[in-house]
Design a protein around this nucleic acid. Structure first.
Lengths: 194, 194
DNA sequence: ACCTGAACACCGTTCAAGT
DNA sequence: ACCTGAACACCGTTCAAGT
């Protein structure tokens, strides 16, 4: 069953994995379908069977990025006790993702913003936002989050998490570990004096 | 004095303007030095006199983006009365920039995150953050912003502004006009019940 | 100082043909 | 169904040479 003589069998996944590696190690400018094909041991025309064109591969990469990020956020949310702990855990997850996959995170949103962006990407971002919304709604039920439109609150939190992660995707982890709790505290207590 | 026969005189600026136009209209994948040179009416080798390579042009583009965004944030901050009005104005400016220059904004942060990113980009982001910091410090002096480390508070605000703008760079303006004040309110009063 | 023209080593995409 | 090989029209970059 091993040693496929002609059919690769798993080319799509191999191309995606190779693309993610190149993206992380050498940046988006170094991504080449022909090189990915070479590394996979197939002809340069083979990838077209799995991805209509280069942007289709990028979109698939972006989609898998959103799915993994949302998965980890979900896990962080369900593993933590109160709302503050949940926010902290989600912040850590988001920042860790940004640190470990800076180029991928940039690509994820760049592709989402592209005029020919597929609906799957918008839907994937929607699922990410729903994860945050779930945690806020739960916090309101527990009396740990103030009353008010949960969508607005969740969107504020998601914005802060995303912005903080992007603005820190090049910051040393120890420094982030120190600053993240402060950011969560500001978000929790608000700007206006109490 | 007109009708330069050989020297272009303004090639660098023309290339940058063309690049920004292509970026906005056809996305980053359509950016080609050779095409920019063609549009500028020079040979395909001419751009190399002004930009060492393609990433140098992208970096220059990113830098000018950060400078313009910071300029507009500065203006918004100084034109508004209290802290809440300032935050709202800055939020509007940031979102307007994201809506009008989505691909450029993506490029700005992508280049900032690149391993070979020039220090000018980091410095430009620093100036952007300082603009937010200035407004927070002023708010604290006026008693409109709670006491606490101004850096942390400013970073929280900057994160929220950036995140909100990026998450909405594809949202219709009317919807943003409705939702932005709610986001500022959540940021102002905090998540925890008062 | 600034630009040209040719050359080189790459691309992405398409399409007949092979297994 | 999946892949190859050749072909086409592009790239970015370099470098002698021109003005």
């Amino acid at each position: 069953m091993t040693g496929r003589p002609y059919h690769h069998g798993d080319l799509r996944a191999v191309l995606l994995a190779g693309a993610e590696r190149t993206l992380a190690e050498r940046g988006p400018g170094a991504l080449s379908l022909r090189e990915l094909a070479r590394e996979a041991g197939v002809s340069h025309a083979a990838p077209s069977r799995h991805f209509r064109d280069k942007t289709a591969l990028l979109d698939a990469l972006a989609l898998s990025g959103f799915e993994r990020l949302t998965e980890r956020l979900d896990a962080a949310a369900s593993e933590s006790g109160d709302t503050r702990g949940g926010l902290l855990a989600m912040g850590r997850v988001y920042v860790a993702f940004a640190l470990g996959n800076a180029a991928l995170l940039d690509l994820m949103y760049a592709r989402k913003h592209a005029p020919d962006s597929p609906g799957e990407l918008t839907a994937a971002v929607g699922r990410l936002l729903e994860t945050v919304l779930g945690m806020i709604a739960e916090g309101q039920r527990a009396g740990e989050v103030a009353a008010g439109d949960p969508e607005s609150i969740a969107f504020t939190v998601a914005s802060t998490l995303h912005g903080f992660a992007v603005l820190n995707s090049t910051t040393p982890p120890e420094e982030i570990d120190r600053s993240l709790p402060h950011i969560i505290d500001v978000l929790a207590t608000g700007l206006v004096p109490r």
